[in-house]
Nucleic acid binder design. Structure first.
Lengths: 337, 337
DNA sequence: CTGAAAGCGCTTACAG
DNA sequence: CTGAAAGCGCTTACAG
């Protein structure tokens, strides 16, 4: 009114004016600042005014004044794991949101020349699904990001102990139950997946050992290079009757190669994948797989990030990830329904 | 040194001190502020000092002072299109980065109760791959986000005119070239994909018309509900010999249903998908598909966002999206190599 | 129980 | 060609 129609934004000062208190009090009420005792009447007036005016704190101003952005940046590798990741991310977002933080995800491109997102976002914590390279760590340090998971020296990704192999053991058990004794492992030749492949293979191998089965016959499987055909031939000759695939893609490639080689799946070779991707149900024959509930993982991730952000000491509750076999045609035995 | 080891951060004032100029000059040099004439010597000294000290501007402070966050938020639907989207996003990031903006992507969860990311990020522009609901638009307005693509009344997504159907016409042409005259369209029953399915179907229909083919026989295909089996039966009886699938998932489901019904693909029914997902090459039989180069789309997206952000009037150059057929077994004719 | 005030690190008219 | 200064909208000791 006074001069022009500026002041688009509703600020804390506006709320203070409407509620008849100081702007500091507005902050105390809205932030539930501990150590402040606000009378019930004042609190109500502030809250009511904030709602009525549609007040939204300016995040940049908050970040500048407090020194914290309340942003958690999750760096994802460019794995094709979208479907199984979504649930995890939703849970993590929700858990963080409840504590006043926001989750931003980011997948850097291998050859990407764009500035990494942590530089423009100034997140309080950067969490990586895989560990960071020295260059990335240096870049974070340079722009003031000090809280990183996994931390500099700490190689293992945060999800390693709880999650790795939760499902791979199930794959082995499933094949074992169906009477398969000589098993193979179909690994991915995708270098980006290296650590995860190792985790899963290790768990499968361990499980096989516990069941008294011989060592898994591992082969790396590529997508179009004939490696699957060679592996299938080799396995068949070696008497392998069940294949534990690193994931559903590998299961599909192996199954395809077997079918094209004139073998029957599961008759000559049973195959089980991992992740229960949409692909699994659509393939011919449909692929048995393992579904992992990643919601727990999401909450765990959130907890880890919050502890880093707020500096609490206790480590998060042990994570129990739930996994279950989704049986389909590719492991069906003669006497199955 | 003076009191304690505070002042972790290198600020513009530090750079100014080191270069022997005022902090304002530092800003002018680093931001290439137009309308300022800085002597070459001063410029060099500032630049050199900034590098030497490892200066990084504090983004929150910049945002607060300038009123712009230089953040573009791209809202993605939870479509399983990760593989075809990545390239697009990388290009968009790169193009935006060159102009000093960062791209943040965000996929809201349907039932998600977390605060939408535009509230915590205050992006300069929010771009949606699909149009926004009234509730979302209201939420954006409330927190001061005024630049939205597609804008409130504007229904169509930004990529509609240039991209829609670029590949669908190719699918029809491909089947036509292979001698198929009675074609069908396999639509998705996924409500989230509604508009995109319509775009693609429309383009395929139009192309069929131009080629003098009869109308496409459309059927909605679900994943596990027997609709694919029913459609395949119906199509076969109706003399349809070629199926244009909305995407590779639908192509896989249709092909699977045909194979299970004892039909040969492509002998009895040729099927072509869309998007060239990894699935396409792994399926048995392998699925012909259409690969769309989404890099152009990424640049277009960036251009659109920048124009909105900086208020320039000109509309972006017409987008020509490159698409090509990737022929595989599912459409192979007898006389093909 | 509440308020006045300094300060976060920038940008940007404005004055020289 | 360069600098002094106000201001962006918050948070947070500090003083009452």
């Amino acid at each position: 009114m006074t001069k022009a129609t500026r002041q688009q934004r509703v600020t804390a000062a506006d709320v203070a004016g409407a509620a008849g208190v100081s702007r500091a009090t507005v902050g105390f009420v809205l932030n539930d600042t501990p150590g402040q005792t606000i009378s019930e009447g004042t609190r109500r007036r502030v809250l009511e005014a904030a709602v009525r005016l549609g007040y939204r704190p300016h995040t940049a101003a908050q970040a500048l004044a407090s020194g914290r952005s309340r942003l958690i940046l999750l760096v994802l590798p460019d794995w094709p794991i979208e479907y199984s990741m979504r649930r995890c991310l939703d849970e993590a977002s929700l858990a963080l949101d409840r504590r006043g933080y926001s989750l931003v995800t980011y997948t850097p491109h291998a050859g990407g020349r764009a500035r990494p997102l942590w530089e423009s976002l100034s997140p309080d914590v950067v969490v990586g699904f895989t560990s960071f390279g020295a260059e990335d760590l240096a870049s974070m340090r340079a722009c003031g990001v000090t809280k990183v998971i996994p931390a500099a020296g700490q190689g293992s990704p945060f999800w390693r102990p709880p999650v790795a192999g939760a499902g791979s053991a199930l794959q082995v058990e499933h094949l074992h139950e169906r009477g398969h004794r000589r098993l193979a492992f179909g690994a991915s030749d995708d270098a980006r997946l290296g650590s995860l492949v190792q985790e899963r293979f290790g768990a499968a191998q361990a499980c096989a050992g516990e069941l008294g089965l011989p060592e898994l016959d591992v082969r790396r499987i590529g997508r179009d290079d004939g490696s699957a055909a060679a592996a299938v031939r080799h396995w068949h000759e070696a008497g392998v009757s069940g294949v534990v695939a690193y994931n559903d893609d590998i299961a599909a490639v192996v199954t395809g190669a077997a079918v094209r080689a004139g073998l029957s799946v599961p008759g000559d070779l049973a195959v089980i994948g991992h992740d229960d991707s949409p692909l699994a149900g659509m393939f011919v024959p449909s692929l048995s797989s393992v579904r992992v509930d990643t919601a727990d993982l999401g909450r765990y991730l959130a907890e880890l990030a919050l502890q880093e952000a707020e500096g609490s000491a206790s480590s998060p509750a042990q994570l129990a990830v739930e996994a279950e076999v989704v049986p389909r045609e590719s492991t069906r035995s003669r006497h199955d329904g």
